[in-house]
Amino acid sequence: MSRILIIEDDPLLSKMYKTKFTSEGFEVETAEDGEIGLKIAMEGKPDFVILDIMMPKLSGIEFLKRLRQNQVGADVPVIVLSNLSEKKEMEEARRLGVKEYLIKSSLTPKDIVEKVKEYLSPMGYSGGAIS
């Protein structure tokens, strides 16, 4: 069973993504800001991180910088899921090695689950669920 960490400060969205990922057979942990997210990520290395950008305490970009500095987090796969479509953030996130930078409002939870599955599948490509 893949363990996924969702870092999202909006409780409505966090709950929704958690519901969807859980129903798809993932083990889900959530964090309401970058700081808590970083702590969870360091303690038990997740298989995948879904990351918001605009968050209190520690922004998504700052989270990524610290995650990458640490050996534990250097290679954790991350998908950014944000409503912030500023090119500056997008480029910075790419530089910090995120798999994708997705715009929340244009995707459904199903779209996001499918993206994650693509990256987690041993073929490195889309296919059935792995859990």
């Binding site: 909006d10 409505l12 969205l13 929704m16 993504y17 519901t19 969807k20 129903s23 605009m54 409503n83 929340k104 409002s105 459904t108 939870p109 199903k110």
Partner: peptide
Amino acid sequence: AHELRAPMTAIKGYLSMILDGD
């Protein structure tokens, strides 16, 4: 606008989940 986007995303998400048969 930013504040509107989160709830709109949630509405979109839940509607799609119902439509997907979840």
